[in-house]
Design a protein around this nucleic acid. Structure first.
Lengths: 345, 345
DNA sequence: CTGTTAGCGCATTCAG
DNA sequence: CTGAATGCGCTAACAG
C-alpha cells in the first residue's frame, strides 16, 4: 500500500521531510507539515513498523512475561498494563510460562525478546538468577510486578506485612493451629509473593507465641483446584487445624471447597482468609486482603515508559493491602473441628 | 550483537547460506549446515525480527483482539491461543477493547495491524461491518472465537442451542416467568453470543408456550457487578420472576448476589443458570452450561496457522456445551418470590 | 550446493 | 527548513 515515497511525491517533498513531519520533529515549516499530514491521511499511509524498527532500533513494543492469564491477579495486571501501554502508543507481546508444580516451566529465553521489545514487564513470575541476569543483559528497561529481585524496579505489595496481617487476623480471632496454603514455592526465587507471605505468616505466629510448624504449609498452585487439593490433604493430616491462610483468593476458595468436601463448616469448623480481593470473593463470603492488581499493572507500565524515556524512577512501588472481613473467618469453636474430624468423611 | 555476517564469516560461507541453513531450507549440504549451526550457537546469533520481516513481509506474529482479559472466557481463550501459537513459533500481540456499556469502545483500527501481524484472532468481540471489512481488507488470515460473522472462520458454541437448553432446563423445572441477563447487546453485531443466546432463550419459551417478554431481558456487562446490578433492577421491576438465565457464569453469580441482596433465597425464591463452567461455579453451587474456552482458543490458533500455511480450513468449528446441574436451580416454590417481594427489602 | 546482487521501507546523517 | 545519500539486517532471486 502507500509508502513513504508515495506521500513524499504527493506532497512534493522528500521522504526525509515526510518522516520528520509525521513524527512531529522540529525543522519542518507549518505549511509543509500540514500538507504532508493531509497527503498521508488521504493516502492512508501507515509506516511499516519493521522498517522503522530496523532503522531506529526501537520497536514501540513491550514484552509481558507471565505464568498465566487465567488467574485473577495476572489477568488484572495484564489488563491494566495493556491499557496504559497502548494509550501511550506501545504494543504488548504476551508470553506465558506455565508454572504449576505439575508442569515443567519453559525457561525464559531473552533471545526471543532481543530486537523485539523496547522493554520487559515480568508479571508474577519467579525467575532464577540466570534468567534475571539474561533479561538485564538485554540492555532494555525491565520492571517487575507482583514480585521481583531487590535490585530491580518492582511494583508490588509488602508481602510480609500482608501475610502477617492476614495471619494476625486469624490469631486475633483466637486461632492457634493455622494452616498456610502457599503458591508455588518449589521453583521460586526468594523474592516471590508466596515466600514473603509465608514469612509474614511465620512472623505473626511468632508474635502470638505459636511455634511455626512447616507441616502446616502446603502448596496450592495458585488456583482453585490446587487450593482444594492441598487443603484437603492438610486437613486430613492435621485435623486440629482451625484456620487457613491462603496466599490467593482462588486458593482460599479452593480451601472452602475442601472444608465442604470434608464436612466442615466455614467458619465454625474452619476459618479461611485469602489475598486479592477477587470479584467473586463476596459471593463466597471470603475474608481477604484486598489489593488493586489493575493499578499495579498500569503503574508498572508507566514506570517502564519513563525508564524508556530515560527518566529516573523509584526503585519500587509498594501497594497497600486492606483487610476486608466477611463470613469465612470467625472464632474457633470448641467442638467444631474435632467433632468434624471424628464424624466427617 | 552478532549479526548474520559474523556468522557467515565465522563459518566461511555467505550470508545467504547462513540464512538458508538456519531456517532449515533445502540446498545446503549437511556439513555446511552443521558448521553454520555451530557457529551461530557459539556466537549466540539471533535474527533480528524487524529485518527479516522487512525482507519477507511476514512477522510470525498474531494479533489477538479482545474486549477484556479479566473475564473467565476471554482469559481462557487467550491462554489457549497463546500456548498453541507459541508452540508453533508465533508471537502474540494483545489488543484489548473495553466494551462495557459505560465505556466508549475504541474502534478496531486495522492500520495498526498492517505489516505487524500475519493473522488476526478476534476473541469475543462484536465488530460492526466496517470493522470486519477493514480486517478482511488486511488480506491476512482472520479467525473469530466465541462470536463471528457467518462468512468468516469461527470457533464457537451453538449459542442458540445453548441458550435454549439453559432456558429449557428452567422451564422443565416448572418456571414460567424467566428473566434473561444478556451481555452487551447494544453495540453488538447480530452474530455475538448474547444475541444468539437470547434467541435460544426466546425459542425455549416459545416451545413452552410462554410469551417472550422483552422487559424480562436486561444487560449485565458480562461481569459480576453488571449481573448483580441488572438482576437487581429486574427483580425490582418484576418481582414475579422466579428464574434467571444469565449469558455468562460471572453474570449469573452476580445474579445470585442480587438475589441475596434482595433477601431472596437461591434456588427457592430464584433459580439461576449461567454459561461457561467457571472455576468458581462449584463453590457458588451454580448450575451452568459448561464449555471449554481454553480449547477453543487453541483450536482457533491452529486454524489460523493452517490458513497462514495456505490450507483449506472448515468454515467454523462448533463446540458442544453441557448442562451441569448444581444447587442454584430448582423448582419454583409457591410462596417464595411473592413472599419475598412482599417481605423483602 | 553456494555466492552475488538487490532490495524490503524507513530514519538519519550531512550538505545546502 | 529541506533534500540526497547511506544503512539498518536479512531474504530472495538469479547466476554459477
Amino acid at each position: 500500500m502507500a509508502g513513504i515515497d508515495d506521500v513524499a511525491r504527493a506532497a512534493g517533498v522528500s521522504t526525509a521531510t515526510v518522516s520528520r513531519a509525521l513524527r512531529g520533529l522540529p525543522n519542518v515549516s507549518a505549511a509543509t507539515r500540514t500538507r504532508v499530514l493531509a497527503e498521508a491521511a488521504r493516502l492512508r499511509y501507515v509506516p511499516t513498523p519493521s522498517a522503522s524498527s530496523l532503522a531506529t532500533g526501537r520497536t514501540r513494543t513491550i514484552g509481558l512475561l507471565t505464568p498465566w492469564v487465567s488467574r485473577w491477579f495476572f489477568a488484572n495486571v495484564i489488563e491494566g498494563a495493556e491499557r496504559a501501554l497502548r494509550d501511550l502508543g506501545f504494543d504488548v507481546l504476551l508470553y506465558t510460562f506455565d508454572v504449576r508444580r505439575s508442569a515443567v516451566r519453559r525457561r525464559v529465553d531473552p533471545h526471543v525478546l532481543r530486537h523485539r521489545v523496547d522493554g520487559t514487564l515480568v508479571v508474577g513470575l519467579g525467575l532464577d538468577d540466570d534468567e534475571v541476569r539474561s533479561l538485564v543483559g538485554l540492555g532494555r528497561p525491565l520492571a517487575f510486578v507482583g514480585s521481583g529481585p531487590a535490585d530491580q524496579v518492582t511494583v508490588r505489595l509488602d508481602d510480609v506485612a500482608t501475610g502477617r496481617a492476614a495471619t494476625q487476623h486469624l490469631v486475633d480471632l483466637g486461632h492457634r493451629v493455622i494452616g498456610h496454603v502457599t503458591g508455588v514455592p518449589d521453583r521460586d526465587s526468594p523474592w516471590t509473593p508466596p515466600v514473603g507471605r509465608s514469612r509474614g505468616y511465620a512472623r505473626a505466629l511468632e508474635d502470638a507465641g505459636v511455634r511455626y510448624d512447616p507441616s502446616l504449609e502446603v502448596d496450592g498452585d495458585f488456583d482453585v483446584e490446587g487450593g482444594r487439593a492441598s487443603t484437603t490433604a492438610l486437613l486430613r493430616a492435621r485435623p486440629d487445624v482451625t484456620a487457613v491462610f491462603a496466599s490467593s483468593d482462588e486458593m482460599a476458595m479452593g480451601a472452602i471447597l475442601a472444608a465442604r468436601d470434608l464436612g466442615r463448616r466455614v467458619p465454625q469448623d474452619l476459618s479461611v482468609i485469602g489475598v486479592d480481593g477477587h470479584d467473586l470473593g463476596e459471593l463466597a463470603g471470603l475474608t481477604t486482603m484486598v489489593q488493586d492488581a489493575y493499578q499495579q499493572g498500569a503503574d508498572a507500565a508507566l514506570l517502564l515508559m519513563e525508564m524508556i524515556g530515560g527518566a529516573e524512577v523509584p526503585a519500587s512501588l509498594t501497594y497497600p493491602t486492606q483487610l476486608v472481613q466477611r463470613a469465612s473467618t470467625g472464632p474457633p469453636t470448641q467442638e467444631g473441628p474435632a467433632a468434624a474430624a471424628r464424624g466427617g468423611e
